[in-house]
Design a protein around this nucleic acid. Structure first.
Lengths: 340, 340
DNA sequence: AACCTGTGCTGAAAGGATTTAGCAGCATCA
DNA sequence: TGATGCTGCTAAATCCTTTCAGCACAGGTT
């Protein structure tokens, strides 16, 4: 029953050919169809509630108004879903729809996912990564639009990344603005980490920004503690140990919120109050950061903005512009830095 | 360059008509094509790396091997992305691909999203909800397959829900198994909450299971504390107040992990140790639950299983079977319940 | 009168798969 | 010998949209 309305139905009702109706509905510029014809077609389309059949259109034009989103991980972190959410929003705004695939980072699944998307004639593919910065991408037909999201690739040069360097600067600046220049402890930087595929580029840039801001202020860290695993437990242990050694920092920069969580507990156990005795600033704006008391002031990862940006770049009329597109990291002020 | 391989190419190479090739590749049962023809076609397809054009197929058959996933919220909780992840996995296993749309729960966006999916001839739509149990669904063409995920709807009778009642029982049973029958405190139940659209059904079933298990064991709660906002701060405050009043529970059942987080802090501040002095069990298996020390023993929400299940139901050959399909909640044992 | 030039529109093909109807050849049967 | 049935395959229509080539007519030139 109730078959879908086709272009032919619209054309018939407007007393025109499907060809004319098609041109009019697509707003072809150079056509010579009368004003009257335009009105009749639009009226007919509206009255019948016509919606074009995307499969037919895709078959003919090889564009589906659909973008592919291939991610190594989807559910593990809020980061991943933030990227997707941003992408969905931008796609919706552009009248597109998003095909999502998860690959676990396995090249075979990735190749299969890409094939499945190409079978459906997606207009472009976003490759998002949660774990590796330089990311594997299967061979693709030339001319396919691609954007690397939180990732880079030799062959696919348009990528969207958080502006970690500026973010790093901001963290330090927050402390400086609070009048803290000395006695700052850095928690989490690991020279080894730079060689790690996962966070190498991220961490390097973040630390670069931190160092630059310190240097600009003519300040030096009281101590830099390398920590491999950025989780609450090590954060707790290292902080507790330093405190036990008699170190009395005025502030701690933690390279992520989970370390900060641990540090916060250790400070509490040592009878030190945040932010009165010690200020704390960290990175990521983890869900955690809002739960803690005091709430963590943190430099957030701009998940949604990045996802949004990726779609916008993908749909740029002339194709995605090459280059690293840096997205500003939000400064989330809570209560872990003392008021000046 | 390098145009895609079409069915006609395969047929030509196999020395047959496209019709024959189509039947063979689709494994039509009643056809009378020779064994030899079968082999030639499959060989040709493999050699050329043929992949069918889904748009063409969809145009002809009105099936796209694509499922729609319409969700009110995508990024807010791990719950949402877990549902998606599960759906993606099951879809991949079934050779399908997933079109995701987010609506914010707004009927207009929802209607638009559904239209966009129907334009692409999806084989069915999953309606997922994070916030409302009885969920709005726009009018749909008859015959479209639908599954409600973490939601219910009058007209669309196939839904997937967590088995909260059994989950509630499990929580209590964990305490009973640890030899704790008395001095149990219930934190979070709110009679008012039952009337709240969001978690009404969930909470009601959860509490029903808890009560049933207690009754079965002939046990009664030491105290039941209603808390409206299930966040760490209220968890802390209510627990601290009860302790200050001199209450000394042997165990606390928290209706979610965030409350438990607060309770844990309050217990610590009062000098009580978990699990030695007080055992703690809660719900949701929030990210938080693993971070805390001790790790929270919790009854998890089976996000991924639910997402997976929804796709499986959607693709059931005879259409999604009506009814409430309950998914078992996992018991996540950590260290917040004392060993017996 | 023949020739252009615009104007406003249409016919038909194309895109790639599926599916129905049916053709040719051969064997069987009466 | 003609009818019948089976086997193995193909021609052509169909799904719906887009797009190229071009038709018919009006009005203006030469």
């Amino acid at each position: 029953m109730g078959k879908r309305v086709t272009l032919a139905d619209v054309a018939r009702r407007a007393g025109l050919s499907p060809a004319a109706a098609s041109m009019i509905l697509n707003g072809r510029p150079d056509t010579r169809l009368s004003k009257d014809a335009h009105e009749r077609v639009h009226a007919a389309a509206a009255e019948l509630g016509y919606r074009p059949n995307m499969s037919a259109r895709a078959l003919r034009t090889d564009t589906s108004h659909t973008v592919g989103f291939v991610s190594d991980l989807v559910a593990t972190t809020r980061f991943a879903s933030g990227l997707i959410k941003g992408a969905l929003g931008a796609a919706e705004a552009a009248g597109q729809v998003v095909l999502v695939a998860e690959t676990g980072g396995e090249p075979e699944r990735e190749a299969e996912a890409v094939s499945a998307l190409l079978d459906r004639q997606v207009d472009g593919i976003i490759f998002a990564s949660m774990r590796a910065r330089e990311t594997f991408v299967p061979r693709l037909p030339t001319g396919l639009r691609t954007v690397m999201l939180n990732a880079t690739n030799e062959l696919h040069r348009c990528s969207v990344l958080p502006d970690e360097e500026t973010g790093g600067r901001r963290a330090v600046e927050l402390l400086l603005d609070a009048g803290i220049r000395d006695g700052i402890l850095l928690l989490g930087y690991d020279a080894e980490a730079e060689r790690d595929l996962f966070r190498s580029a991220t961490v390097a840039a973040r630390v670069r920004g931190i160092s630059a801001a310190m240097a600009d202020a003519g300040a030096r860290f009281l101590h830099e503690e390398s920590i491999w695993l950025w989780e609450p437990a090590p954060g707790y242990e290292f902080t507790a140990r330093l405190l036990a050694q008699g170190m009395r920092p005025r502030a701690i920069v933690c390279l992520n919120d989970r370390l900060a969580f641990g540090a916060l507990q250790a400070l509490g156990d040592a009878g030190l109050r945040v932010p009165d005795d010690v200020s704390l600033v960290s990175f990521d704006n983890d869900e955690l950061a809002a739960y803690l008391r005091p709430g963590l002031t943190t430099i957030g990862l701009p998940h949604e903005d990045m996802g949004r940006r990726a779609v916008e770049l993908l749909l740029t009329p002339d194709g995605p512009p090459e280059g690293q597109h840096l997205v500003e990291m939000p400064v989330v002020i809570r209560d872990s830095i003392r008021r000046p």
